[in-house]
Simulated scan of single mutants.
Amino acid sequence: MARAGVTVERLAEAAADLADEVGLENVTVSELARRFGVKDASLYSHIRNAHELRVRVALLALAELADRAAAALAGRAGKDALAAFADAYRDYAREHPGRYAAAQVELDPETIRASAAGRHAEMMRAILRGYALAEPAQTDAVRLLGSTFHGFVSLERSGGFSHHPRSADASWRRILDTLDVALRTWPS
């Protein structure tokens, strides 16, 4: 890339692309500087440190994931909405492993409120309205869904399902069926 045109947004996009290529843990300011054809110090006029860069990649990934999930949810309700959201989540993690890893970066509450990070929980809550769950059951259900989706995706990404004859896709469908039943019959 040419020296001209380095912006915070372009740095975050380049870091996200690099994370997808080599893993988030291997994204460095030095490698990004090489890709932009500048010295490391030049990038520090746009970002404070590597942590800020990771946060910016996290925010980019969360916005992309929220947009994808929102598009998948449009016009859907109940189990259909649950499956659409879950599939969008899983597909994003498969297509963008570095970005997905960045989306797990811990963010401070103010950053969450000012970003797309809060949209995920709100979309899950919208799905759960179709199951008529009131608080605190709704919060418990959001946590169940989030931990199930993240757990499955993490195990799948690490090869945890590769040595079994049953396909991960078949298990994914069965898990979504089970979650639907659990949500419809949530204990009082």
Rank of each mutant, 00 (worst) to 15 (best):
W186C: 06
P97C: 10
R48C: 05
A63P: 01
I47E: 09
E52K: 15
F85G: 11
Q138T: 10
L53Q: 04
T148E: 00
D20Y: 02
K39T: 06
A71L: 15
A102V: 01
R68P: 02
L145F: 05
L73I: 04
A93T: 00
A2Q: 08
H164E: 12
L18Y: 07
A4I: 01
S45M: 02
D20Q: 01
A101L: 13
A103E: 02
G146D: 10
L43R: 08
D140N: 05
F152W: 08
A66I: 04
A16D: 00
A71E: 14
S45Q: 11
V6Q: 00
R99M: 13
V142D: 01
S45L: 12
T178Y: 05
R76S: 05
R113P: 02
R76K: 15
A77T: 10
R56G: 08
A15V: 02
Y89M: 06
Q138W: 07
R35H: 12
V8D: 03
A12N: 02
M1V: 12
G37T: 14
L24M: 13
E110G: 04
L32H: 08
G130A: 09
L145N: 12
E64N: 12
A116H: 13
E31G: 15
R54P: 10
P97N: 07
G160P: 13
E9V: 11
R34N: 15
F36K: 02
G5D: 00
T7R: 07
V8S: 06
N49S: 06
D20G: 00
L65K: 10
S45G: 05
A50V: 07
T7C: 03
A74H: 14
L179R: 11
S154G: 12
A63Y: 03
T185Y: 07
G146F: 06
T185V: 01
F161D: 12
A86L: 13
R94G: 00
S154M: 04
V55Y: 01
A16G: 04
Y89K: 03
G130K: 12
K39E: 12
Y89P: 00
M124W: 06
A126R: 15
L155S: 12
